[in-house]
Amino acid sequence: MEVPIAVALAQSVPRLPDGPGWWFEPKFDGHRLVMIRDADTVRLQARSGRIVTSQWMDLAVAGMKLRPGTILDGEAVIWRSGRLDFAAVQARAASSVDRARALAEQHPASYAVWDVLAHPVLGDVRARRYTARRELLLDLLADVGPPIQPVPATDDRETALVWYETLQTQGIEGIVAKRGDGTYRRGRHWYKIRHAETVEASVVGYTGAAAQPRALAVRLPDGRTAMSQRLTSVLSTAAAAYLITAGPGPRGHTDDGTPYTSSTTDLTVEVLAGTTRHAVVTVTRLR
């Protein structure tokens, strides 16, 4: 399987789909990772395609328990005081190698797995239906144990709604719905409902230096280009890794005339849906 691997994504919907053939999973609040178990090592790929093994070395070490030839898709999460801590995940993802090692000792990560893309015996299994891949996943992880564990899944919509209503206090941010007969392919073929009202926006530029951007210019789902509010230090550091790699482009302007340095990158961010009116954008996380 060629790396980087294009991952499947979910689109936001106002309610869970109904009818036969749907499966539901809790949506964990973490950092998307593809775990690639090679013959001699483990590589971890972010949603963007970047290799981020050094930031999640504790999970890479745990992944050595997998059989060579296994490729998994899931979420790196960090539990603190009985709930998911996304701020800790962001800090780890934006850390240097030494800092990531120190953070891992304080707050080890877990890997919540929802899919298997390659099987050590069967090879590429993305063309198989979700229910078949789910069986393969449970079998592969049966003897692996924490911190690598499969996410819960159910084909009962009422159970999924109970999860949605009761698991928010633990940091579960919503529910993802998938067709039981669906294959794994790139693009937005899954559905999600979330407690937080956010939308995804593509980053098209920045203000300040690429190594420490003050704000991001983003293209919103309705096609408008807007400037975000000032980034937190954690978000600025995380975005810098993408912007430095892409390099600066020509000067651009948002719809209201604010100038920015353009950047050709595949970086996507989540912004609060309520702040996108009048082109005011608050970035909550990098995707």
Rank of each mutant, 00 (worst) to 15 (best):
T166G: 06
E135H: 04
G145T: 07
V204A: 02
L117K: 05
A273Y: 05
G182F: 00
A39K: 11
A246V: 04
W23H: 13
A91W: 08
T232P: 04
E135Y: 00
H253V: 11
Y260M: 09
T245F: 05
A196W: 12
T53S: 13
V113Y: 02
Y242C: 01
A241R: 12
P120I: 00
P14I: 05
E165Q: 13
A10F: 12
R214I: 08
P147Y: 14
E197T: 09
R157N: 10
T198S: 03
R251M: 03
L59D: 15
D124T: 04
G171Q: 05
Y206H: 08
Y130C: 00
T258N: 05
Y191R: 15
R134K: 06
D222Y: 01
R47V: 01
R80H: 11
G171L: 08
G223A: 02
A132I: 13
G30N: 12
L122H: 14
T282A: 12
E2C: 06
V52L: 01
R188S: 14
G171T: 12
A112P: 00
Q45M: 02
Q170H: 11
R230C: 04
K192L: 11
G274T: 07
V34L: 15
G257H: 04
R287I: 03
A209Q: 15
V269Q: 03
V116W: 02
V34N: 12
G21T: 05
V13C: 14
F28K: 02
A142M: 09
L136K: 04
L33W: 02
P68A: 13
A6W: 01
V97R: 14
S233E: 10
T169L: 03
D266L: 04
F24L: 10
L235P: 02
T159R: 14
R15E: 15
D156Y: 10
G49T: 00
G252I: 01
M64V: 09
A109N: 02
R224T: 10
Q106P: 00
A196K: 11
S54R: 13
Y184Q: 11
L117R: 01
V203S: 11
T166H: 10
G171F: 10
E165H: 15
E197I: 03
T154A: 11
E173C: 10
D38G: 11
R67Q: 07
V42S: 08
T207V: 08
R37G: 05
P14M: 07
T268L: 07
G69A: 05
E158K: 15
L161G: 08
T166S: 14
Y191Q: 09
T154P: 13
E165N: 15
K27E: 15
G171I: 14
L231C: 08
R50M: 01
A226S: 15
S54N: 13
R219F: 09
H278F: 13
V3R: 14
H107P: 05
P4R: 05
S202D: 07
E200N: 12
V151L: 15
L220S: 09
T282W: 12
Y260L: 09
E158F: 11
E270H: 09
G171A: 12
R50G: 00
P248A: 07
R129D: 10
Y260P: 11
S262E: 13
V176R: 14
I71T: 14
A215W: 07
S228M: 15
G223E: 00
